[in-house]
């Protein structure tokens, strides 16, 4: 059974023109389709990586999974229960089970809270345990992320290094004993030499504490290292999903291919064949109905701007790409 399932989930934002715009230029309300008809599933104990460039909808997807943003359509199922239909006490429980780790360790910690207050805040807000128990759990959790409570208990965030702050962020999510952790680019603000430590910590804790994880990043090198499965998004659409090895070693979708071949390799002897993609990712404002990559895709034809196949959640473990011309592309290549 999947822990989390997103069925046909979309999130649209309306872009209303100002009064002047409306009167003088007849501006209409435009729609940003940040996430369009996403299907995905996360199994217990797996790490699902979501990759894509900025504006691909990965952060919006995270917010919907964490219950911070309701979907415009479609359903978010958690243990087969629709999150949109939960009662407030169920929702509180859901809030505990699904936790987030944030991107920016300098922004995501309240500057006026001490480390112990930051980590205790979740259990206190949801009244998970008594105060004494919270204290014990928090101390144990801090030790678990490598910050001995004796030394860090009374510190303020501005007294910590970036790596230490991110450990506090991780502790404050995991102290809730979540079943699913959504990590939104947790390493992108950290220095190279300490990234591996945080990555190891996340991997190790996910094994120890049995939580599933959605790890969102634009950095495929990191995802290649931590994820079990990988979902690639482009401009709000899911374009490819599969085991991390399949997707990276044998990408199917033209976008995934371009993306992977564009990742620089830390070895001067490796010569990559650069992708043949032109242009830049735009914003999904009133996009055409078909595949949103069509305008930049070297293999696209007329049908691509009209047809878009969604990924199929019924076979979650299969390697699939949302491109209806895969066979033609493959035959062109050979």
């Amino acid at each position: 059974m999947a822990l989390l399932e997103l069925n046909n989930v979309s999130r649209h934002f309306e872009l209303r023109p100002g009064v002047v715009e409306r009167v003088l230029r007849g501006g209409k309300t435009r729609v940003i389709k940040a996430v369009e008809a996403i299907n995905l599933s996360v199994a217990k104990d797996e790490i699902l990586g979501i990759a894509g460039e900025s504006g691909c909808g990965k952060s919006t997807t995270c917010s919907m999974v964490a219950g911070l943003l309701p979907p415009s359509s479609g359903e978010v199922l958690y243990r087969d229960r629709n999150v949109g239909e939960m009662t407030s006490s169920e929702l509180n429980d859901h809030r505990r089970r699904v936790q987030m780790i944030f991107q920016d360790p300098y922004e995501s910690l309240n500057p006026r809270f001490r480390v112990s207050d930051i980590v205790s805040e979740g259990p206190r807000a949801l009244r998970l345990w008594g105060e004494r128990e919270i204290e014990e759990q928090v101390a144990a959790m801090l030790a678990g992320v490598g910050l001995p409570a004796g030394k860090y208990w009374d510190r303020y965030p501005h007294e910590l290094s970036g790596g230490e702050r991110q450990r506090v962020g991780i502790a404050s999510a995991l102290v809730m004993k979540p079943e699913l952790v959504v990590a939104d680019e947790p390493l992108s603000m950290l220095d190279v030499s300490i990234r591996a430590g945080i990555l190891d910590l996340l991997k190790e804790l996910s094994r120890q504490r049995n939580f599933a994880c959605i790890y969102v990043s634009h950095d495929l090198s990191i995802l290649a290292n931590i994820a079990d499965r990988l979902l690639i998004m482009y401009l709000g659409q899911a374009v490819e999903v599969g085991s991390v090895h399949d997707v990276i070693k044998n990408p199917k979708h033209p976008y995934t291919r371009a993306l992977i071949s564009a990742v620089p390799v830390p070895d001067p002897r490796v010569k990559r064949s650069p992708p043949k993609i032109v242009g830049e990712i735009s914003r999904p404002v009133d996009p055409p109905p078909g595949c949103r990559f069509a305008s930049r895709c070297p293999h696209a034809d007329q049908s691509c701007s009209e047809v878009f196949i969604k990924l199929d959640t019924n076979s979650p473990l299969a390697h699939q790409a949302a491109c209806h011309r895969l066979e033609q592309i493959n035959s062109e290549a050979t």
């Binding site: 190279v192 030499s193 300490i194 990234r195 591996a196 430590g197 945080i198 990555l199 190891d200 950095d219 495929l220 090198s221 990191i222 290649a224 290292n225 991390v244 090895h245 990276i248 070693k249 992977i260 990742v263 390799v265 830390p266 070895d267 490796v270």
Partner: peptide, 16 residues
């Protein structure tokens, strides 16, 4: 050791 590479996926990363 610490820098991940997409070409060598199974390499264990070691932080400093």
């Amino acid at each position: 050791n610490a820098f991940p590479s997409i070409s060598v996926m199974d390499n264990e990363l070691i932080s400093i």
